[in-house]
Design a protein around this nucleic acid. Sequence first.
DNA 1: ATTGTAATTTACCTACCGTTAAATAAAAAT
DNA 2: ATTTTTATTTAACGGTAGGTAAATTACAAT
Lengths: 187, 187
Amino acid sequence: MPAYKTDKDTLLVRAMQVFRSQGYHASSMADLAAACGVQKAHLYYYFPGGKEDLMNHVLEAVHTYFKERIMVYAWDEERSPEERLAQLSAQLYKVFVRNQGGCIMGNTTLEVAHLDPAPVFVARVKAYFDDMLACLAHVFAQRHAPELARTKAQTAIQDIQGGIMLMQLYNDPSFFAAALQRMQEAY
Amino acid sequence: MPAYKTDKDTLLVRAMQVFRSQGYHASSMADLAAACGVQKAHLYYYFPGGKEDLMNHVLEAVHTYFKERIMVYAWDEERSPEERLAQLSAQLYKVFVRNQGGCIMGNTTLEVAHLDPAPVFVARVKAYFDDMLACLAHVFAQRHAPELARTKAQTAIQDIQGGIMLMQLYNDPSFFAAALQRMQEAY
DNA sequence: ATTGTAATTTACCTACCGTTAAATAAAAAT
DNA sequence: ATTTTTATTTAACGGTAGGTAAATTACAAT
């Protein structure tokens, strides 16, 4: 089916893996091209804006993936809130433990949040956390008042992000797993 | 009193500010030297191992600062656990909200945690979180069983680190402040 | 004053960075 | 078959990265 050897989505997946495990600045265009099995000049064909443009599309793809494959469970009105949280936890655990490099959104936040000038893709990271916050708050709102639900969602996200941080530092997924557990118990 | 224009500690403070707000890889030796008011070659006089060596000493200094100026409150047996947590919260709030760039330990974790080869200073970051965890667990252990105390300490740290992350992303300290509040209520 | 040592700068090196232009190869259209 | 368009590579550019060697300046000891 692929007439040409590369399609844009494959490039994005490979580039994402590099960015996630090495970070934005430590990932060179040469690294990214090598991981994609392509000469680095070719990356400018699909992403004329260069490295920043590529990262922007990578984060957009990640955001889309999370919305379609993970956050959807939060909006599934057929299931109980408890079931939704369990589904969310299971999916998040799979994604963040299977893959090396933790959460590219969290990594990117701490790496570039207050660079001057701020890269354009900071907006993508914000949009991701906006959505994650909204979907968790929606689930908690099934039982709790909107404000409390929102606070619980924020708490869960902070706990989870901190858990991913310690998981990476100590190479021990239990921090992250515990955060997911607490999110479920918070309902 | 300073016979020469630079002493090592001043260099470390200035370098720390750069590393904290720009991150490790985005901080060039030229940036660091400029912030220190020194030619970049001079940095190799005090830190022969170069950038990595400098970062290592910066993180060591930060670790020492936190131990002596913040974590001490946790071990102050003269005060009640509630008072100690209040003191810790107040100090942490001051440090992380006043300064730009959030927590250099958290930033560094997510930026370099799984670089290959891992920089030597990853060990310093681990030591910092070890100590922070131990001191919080010590306070919680005044009322709770050791295991539960440790879990509460982990939870607090994760919540706080996630709070610092969102604080930086949204430029809103309330995430972080809420985490400190929850830490106090967890006792 | 002279010498010795510690601190700091000047000048430079190589390697690699992100990026661009032009050439080539592959596929589609006619 | 020929042409046109799309995909991909080759080759190179200027800039800057981290780092080094040597020269110079500032202080200390005598």
